[in-house]
């Protein structure tokens, strides 16, 4: 069944996240990061930074950091078991550090299909800001298999 295109424009409930040095340390360990600016608060401060650097893809983790990160997919009546992460795009405006409070404000901006509906695509765009200043934009493309 094709997803109703009336969902284009659906707002995702906004949320706020304050990344911690503790979690970023584990993210750095998991990804094999060797640059201490990403996991050592003392080294980051010595380099003049207000906290450890939030790495490029961590914005996705923060966007997911809410009780029901896929509630917008559920609203469309899609089966979570058929859901794949198709594409992820980031546009960066300002560096972000541990301790910054970030606001995530998202919206479904497109729904389309390929192969006669065998693959459907849901595009969500999220604007991330810090005290009203844009720091990053995310585009997440979710694929729903028939």
């Amino acid at each position: 069944m094709l997803i109703d295109k009336k969902h284009i424009g659906m707002k995702v409930p906004p949320h706020a996240v304050t990344p911690t040095a503790w979690q970023l340390k584990w993210f750095a360990k998991a990804t094999g990061e060797t640059n201490p600016l990403y996991f050592d608060e003392a080294a980051a401060r010595k380099a003049g930074l207000p906290g450890v650097l939030v790495p490029p893809t961590f914005f996705f983790c923060m966007d997911m950091d809410k009780d029901e990160p896929f509630d917008y997919i559920a609203t469309m009546g899609c089966d979570f078991g058929k859901m794949l992460h198709g594409e992820q795009i980031f546009t960066y405006h300002k560096p972000v550090y541990s301790g910054d409070t970030l606001d995530f404000d998202g919206q479904v901006t497109d729904i389309y299909d390929k192969k006669n509906g065998a693959l459907q695509f849901i595009v969500k765009d999220v604007k991330v800001s810090r005290q009203g200043e844009a720091v990053c934009d995310l585009r997440t493309v979710i694929v729903i298999r028939a």
Partner: peptide
């Protein structure tokens, strides 16, 4: 994608990255 992020940030400081997109 995080590994690809490391590929970029071992070449340039992170603030030089303007856009970064991946297809899985």
């Amino acid at each position: 994608m995080a590994y690809l992020g490391r590929l970029l940030t071992q070449w340039v400081p992170q603030e030089a990255i303007r856009t970064f997109g991946v297809r899985f």
